[in-house]
Design a protein around this nucleic acid. Structure first.
Length: 670
DNA sequence: GCGACAAGCGCG
DNA sequence: AAAGCGCGCTTGTCGC
């Protein structure tokens, strides 16, 4: 069960050097002052990856034009005094005009050295991000980027000299680590030199400067952290553990006569749920006559070898244990989340890692923990496939309830309404959508009515689910299976879409044609999406929309930050971005004035001459958000998970299905 | 024992 | 092409 997590190692190296000729590798904290007004690269070596609890060992500096001549060397930061001296000196030079700081993944180094980049006036350049701006597809590891832009492979040369456990600097002789560290600084410096004309050539210099300001904002959110309610986490964990035990026994009883088996293995589950229980496997529509799927997408879709994902189990196989399996897996997944949160917790704070240079489309990604995929309070019955009416999870499963504002503060979540639809409409100049959005009508409901002739919530949700599928090239065959409908109906729906949106197909065609000609696409702000393989260029339209939306969210976030540093200084802070949403912590008393201002700023009407409509929700807990208008009327979602709320809420839906299962089981025994 | 891959599922 | 797109995290499996 519990994942093996590596503990940070003790720093056991010997601080006295055996060879005099190694002394030149090391410099004192005051040497940093020689970099004032100059361009310098820095890099830290650490005994772990978590800045809020792991130790920093050394900082390397590389500054060829330092005052008094070329400077390179490592500063040992093993004592608080030395570490603080480094920090103080970096702050000093950061306010000297002309100082430029270079680093590869600068947030990592800055976090360990407690440099708050957002309030340091020097200009920073992150070489990983510069490489990302040139080609978002490539690996951003220092060694890889060095090979691409400098044509050298010094990383490997030095790695070979390390010996021992190379993953941790603490296991390496100090002098060896210093050589390695200084080399990284030198490579970073040379990379910045090589990448500057590249970024400039793409016309992306001002975007780079904006992105570097964004780096500061992201770092600030990481450091401030997400405030968590440890009491909720403990309660929820205990509840789910108990629930998991119950469900597991139930599964074993109903599938294997009470004998245990590892339901986490899809292979085993496939054999037991289908072969042993004698339930027919769904027919793979892409398989040959002998039942074998020989298409190149055989292992990609829902109809894989095991056919045990919840959608297939419930909607296709109609397996009587489908709901039970789904619930067991959901509980298991959420217990994993709680375990990770607990492992990463810093007091009551979670410091996520927001990665600016990882995704193909220039979206952000988040990890340790991923704050962009936390279970919300509602979910579809069959996960992300067919919408069949959603329901609210019970409190113990609404993990967002664990995120709790400090006293006097409230969470403000401002998100875009149909952000990607809006972006698509603008980029494709799609008249029906533009009109619907400009008139502030509900576009998904409009589409539902046009296609199905029904405006109810279920059809609206269907529309949401498949809209982008159709826009980005989903075929009628795939649609047929997604909607669990007939081939004819799928074709009819697809045709309705194309008729309703005359610009959809031309936009796709034009996008592909552009990409064929240039090998890349350009976002509304100039960022590149490269693709050379013709068969993948259909993905470009999605990239323009998804990535373009991410760029809008970035601009909106920076503008909100300016608001919170200026007119509303001290009123609150940004907490996390979630693709089409900014989450804020705001002082309760300024919220009535501030929330509408934020909502307005985020609309960014000046950029496209069309507002990106926003919606404000408010709550003490992220998992209990209420529309701002309703909040003002006194509406609250009460998180009454303490005490006996579970017993009160528990429903009894299991009776019928259990009988059904018992019958099957009785039949099997006989 | 480790890395790579598959499967599964959480989010937008 | 019987292709919606983009992520992160965990477990199981298999080969080295």
């Amino acid at each position: 069960m519990g994942k093996k997590r590596r503990e940070p190692l003790e720093i056991g190296h010997n601080l006295s050097f055996s060879f005099d000729d190694e002394q030149h590798l090391f410099i004192e904290p005051d040497a940093i002052l020689r970099c004032a007004g100059k361009t310098m690269a820095f890099d830290v070596e650490t005994a772990g990856l978590h800045w809020w609890r792991d130790r920093q060992i050394m900082m390397g500096i590389y500054c060829p034009r330092a005052e008094g001549g070329h400077l390179e060397g490592c500063i040992i930061t093993d004592t608080p005094a030395r570490w603080e001296a480094v920090r103080d000196n970096l702050y000093k030079i950061s306010s000297v005009p002309g100082t430029v700081a270079l680093a590869h993944n600068i947030k990592f180094d800055a976090n360990f050295q407690a440099l708050e980049l957002w309030r340091m006036p020097w200009q920073i350049y992150d070489t990983a991000h510069m490489a990302h701006l040139d080609d978002s597809r490539q690996s951003k590891r220092l060694g890889d980027v060095e090979k691409v832009y400098l044509g050298t492979d010094s990383k490997r040369t030095h790695l070979g000299a390390l010996g021992g456990d190379r993953r941790h600097m603490s296991n390496v002789r100090l002098a060896t680590a210093a050589v390695y560290c200084i080399n990284d600084c030198r490579v970073t410096y040379e990379l910045a030199r090589a990448l500057t004309p590249v970024v400039n050539k793409h016309g992306l210099w001002s975007v780079l400067l904006e992105d570097m300001r964004y780096t500061g904002l992201l770092q600030r959110m990481e450091r401030d952290g997400v405030p968590m309610d440890l009491e909720y986490i403990e309660h929820s964990r205990a509840f789910m553990k108990k629930r998991q035990d119950e469900k597991q026994s139930e599964l074993w009883n109903l599938s294997n006569g009470g004998k245990s088996w590892n339901w986490r293995s899809p292979q085993l589950m496939s054999r037991i749920l289908y072969d042993k229980m004698g339930v027919a496997r769904p027919i793979n529509p892409y398989a040959d006559a002998d039942g074998v799927d020989r298409s190149r997408f055989a292992d990609r879709g829902m109809y894989n070898k095991t056919m045990t994902n919840s959608f297939i189990l419930m909607e296709k196989a109609k397996h009587p244990l489908g709901p039970l399996v789904a619930e067991l897996r959901e509980t298991d997944k959420m217990l994993d989340v709680l375990e990770l949160w607990t492992y990463l917790m810093d007091g009551n704070l979670l410091h996520t890692s927001l990665n600016q240079s990882r995704t193909r489309t220039h979206r952000l990604s988040a990890g340790e923990p991923n704050v962009q995929n936390m279970p919300s309070d509602v979910r579809g019955r069959a996960h992300t496939q067919v919408y069949s009416g959603d329901f609210t999870r019970q409190d113990e499963f609404k993990l967002r309830l664990a995120i709790k504002a400090p006293p006097g503060y409230l969470f403000d979540s401002t998100d875009y309404k149909q952000q990607e639809m809006r972006m698509f409409a603008i980029l494709a100049k799609e008249p029906f959508m533009m009109e619907s959005l400009r008139a502030r009508r509900d576009i998904h409901a409009d589409i539902a009515e046009a296609v199905w002739g029904v405006r109810d919530p279920v059809h609206r949700e269907w529309s949401k689910t498949i809209a982008f599928g159709l826009i980005y090239g989903m075929t009628a065959g795939s649609l047929e299976h997604r909607l669990n409908t007939t081939r004819e109906e799928a074709f009819r729906i697809a045709d309705q879409y194309r008729a309703k949106f005359p610009r959809v197909m031309p936009f796709l065609k034009e996008t592909i044609a552009y990409c064929k000609q240039y090998g890349y696409l350009k976002y509304w702000n100039g960022k590149l999406w490269r693709e050379n393989e013709e068969s993948y260029m259909y993905k470009g339209a999605n990239a323009l929309v998804q990535g373009g939306s991410a760029e809008l969210l970035k601009v909106a976030g920076l503008r909100c930050q300016a608001l919170l540093e200026g007119e509303f200084a001290g009123a609150g802070r940004l907490v996390i971005p979630v693709h089409d949403e900014w989450v804020f912590l705001l002082k309760e008393e300024v919220l009535p004035e501030l929330a509408p201002r934020i909502a307005k700023v985020m609309e960014c009407e000046d950029i496209f001459n069309l507002p990106f409509a926003t919606e404000v929700k408010v709550a003490e807990r992220y998992g209990a958000l209420v529309k701002w208008e309703d909040w003002q009327k006194g509406e609250r979602k009460v998180a009454n998970w303490l005490g006996d709320s579970y017993e009160k809420q528990e429903e009894e839906p299991a009776e019928e299905s259990n009988e059904e299962v018992e019958e099957i089981w009785e039949g099997l025994k006989g």
